[in-house]
Nucleic acid binder design. Structure first.
Lengths: 187, 187
DNA sequence: AGGGTAAGGAACCAAATAGTTCCAAACACG
DNA sequence: CGTGTTTGGAACTATTTGGTTCCTTACCCT
């Protein structure tokens, strides 16, 4: 009945998310997004309405892929062989440091949005808050009965580390940040 | 020998800092700054060259006032009557929470700059990094001999809390974040 | 008093911004 | 094999961006 869409909408969204992740919401211009997604203005606006809804969809995509993966690695049922509790949490932080070593300076899309557009847009703030709370519950779940005591602290540490990863701080700051968590594990 | 400047340059810088603090670097437009500083384009550009140098000066001003105050409250010589060590640190975090209760949603200029312009501008990144390291040393100083063990962790927690303050998270998240520090004090 | 100098501010500028319009190309369906 | 519909994309628009120019006004110094 009509001409079919020539691009995969999931794929385009994934690419948009990566542009936002790297540049941030305000700093990502439409040409940046168009270029990164590999399609033209008409197609983009027809499929995603406008920049803000594209960003909200990107946040959703980030939540479903990145955040859920992290949460799953934390809150999966305990195993007898693999890491549990604090080791899982530290593993997550070490993954962040490893990505930093590999040259990843993107930080966390949620954390960047928190200081940026979430400060003046309620819808974005809700999505950010929701993602961070998902992470909080995963921390709590990983630690079992003592989880609630540390969950909020770990969220702050996670955000702090991710922010440090995005700015050009000295190399050892990120690593020292992760290592400082050993203190908590070894209590 | 010439017409004297009609505005106080320190005062104007303070106002500029507040605009950047509230809106962020990119989101603060020149009209926003002009309006907040109460002067016109010609005067501003003559006194501060351009937006970026105005921001660098604002960061410097933030460092000299806000960061130095915080650092001083942490690393002053121990007293027999007032709070010391962990109590000083927790006091700093509680001040942040109090500001939040009073409606302050600005977060921390350093932390906002870290995820924003510091990600693509080396000069800004240097200034941000320098400010954060000043805070790190103050944390370490407050704790004395065990300071190095916790300093990096505290910096991450401070950044995380400030980021949460800027986004519109649920009211109890900020308070729980501060309370979670009691665990460290009571080790 | 008056000349040299710099401040203040309106008008201006080019570039970039997000968003819209319109039309030809391309495919599904009868 | 057309016909109708929707895509993709170029061209366009209005607004806002940071930054400059230039002229009037105001002041200090001799």
């Amino acid at each position: 009945m009509a001409r079919p869409r020539e691009f995969d909408i999931e794929d385009a969204l994934e690419k948009a998310m990566n542009v936002f992740w790297e540049r941030g919401y305000e700093e990502a211009s439409m040409p940046d997004l168009l270029d990164g997604m590999g399609l033209s203005r008409g197609s983009l606006y027809k499929a995603f309405t406008d920049k803000k809804t594209l960003f909200l969809k990107s946040l959703e995509n980030y939540d479903q892929h990145i955040v859920c993966d992290a949460a799953a690695s934390l809150s999966a049922p305990p195993t007898s062989t693999g890491p549990n509790g604090w080791d899982r949490i530290i593993g997550l932080f070490e993954n962040v440091a490893d990505a930093w070593d590999a040259g990843d300076r993107r930080g966390c899309l949620l954390c960047s949005a928190a200081v940026g557009p979430a400060s003046y847009d309620a819808e974005i703030a809700d999505a950010v808050s929701q993602g961070l709370m998902k992470l909080r519950h995963a921390f709590a779940a990983a630690l079992g009965e003592h989880g609630e005591k540390y969950a909020d602290m770990l969220v702050m540490q996670y955000i702090g580390l991710r922010v440090l990863c995005r700015s050009h701080v000295a190399p050892n700051v990120v690593h020292n940040g992760v290592k400082s968590l050993y203190v908590l594990r070894d209590l």
